Amino acid sequence: MTESSTPLQPRMRQTMRAEVARVATGLFAARGFENVTVPQIAAAAGVSRATFFRYFGSKEDAVLAALEGYGARIAEALAARPAGEDAWTALRRAFDVITDARSEDPEGGLALARLIESTPSLRTREMEKYRSWQETLSGVLAERLGRGKENFETALLAAAALTALEVATRRWAQTDGADDLGTLIDQAFLAMRAPAPDLL
């Protein structure tokens, strides 16, 4: 179902949910995650506290709403890669979903990355989300390679790729976007594929 064919009420709810998440993330970035309360977010977004909790179970959920859907989109991109392409390259190119989105809103993406990097509870929740992505990507790889769904090698590849993404994104946040995110991900993938001899 396309966005235009989605019933009006669900679309309005999605729009309002996205707006509340945007307001929350802006407040967190300006004041610090621990210094902003749910009532303050609700007031700034023009909704009630009860409405906030209809959209989100916690403050962390409001921040990580920006990552919703990425797992499925990355998996779709991975499944669409050429059949003859090696798995590691296919995984790297599937992450273009993220770099393309960040290029459309670099300041927003960087603010989100900095917020997650500086907030332990958000980093924990982000890693939980990566874990769910790992299971999804491992399943796609297993299908591409003709392996069983619980295949050890495809699970390891997916986990390694997501680790490369996580480390690159953290470096991007730590340097305030001085380095290109796509380049950092390329470097992380290359380093994991061919580590420097003095590290082995």
Rank of each mutant, 00 (worst) to 15 (best):
G32A: 07
E34C: 07
N35R: 11
Q40F: 03
I41W: 00
A42T: 11
A43C: 04
A43Q: 07
A44S: 05
A45D: 04
A50P: 08
T51I: 05
F52C: 04
F52K: 04
F53C: 12
Y55A: 13
F56G: 13
G57E: 14
G57H: 15
G57D: 12
S58C: 03
S58P: 14
K59Y: 03
K59L: 00
E60C: 01
D61A: 14
A62E: 06
A62G: 06
V63I: 11
L64T: 09
L64P: 10
A65N: 14
A66E: 15
L67T: 15
E68A: 15
G69Y: 01
G69P: 09
G71S: 01
A72W: 05
A72T: 14
A80G: 09
D86K: 08
A87T: 09
W88E: 15
W88K: 08
A90F: 07
A94E: 05
F95D: 10
F95M: 05
I98F: 02
T99W: 00
T99L: 07
D100E: 15
D100Q: 14
D100M: 03
D100C: 01
D100W: 01
A101D: 13
A101N: 06
R102K: 07
D105S: 08
P106A: 01
G108I: 07
G109H: 00
L110G: 05
A113Q: 13
R114A: 12
R114F: 03
L115C: 04
E117I: 10
E117K: 05
S118A: 15
S121C: 07
R123E: 10
R123G: 15
R123K: 07
R125G: 12
R125C: 06
M127H: 14
K129D: 12
R131K: 15
R131I: 07
R131F: 09
R131W: 09
R131A: 15
R131N: 14
S132R: 13
Q134C: 13
E135I: 08
E135P: 02
T136N: 11
S138T: 09
G139V: 00
V140W: 02
L141H: 00
L145N: 13
L145H: 13
R147W: 04
K149D: 15
K149E: 15
E150C: 04
N151A: 07
F152W: 13
F152H: 14
F152G: 09
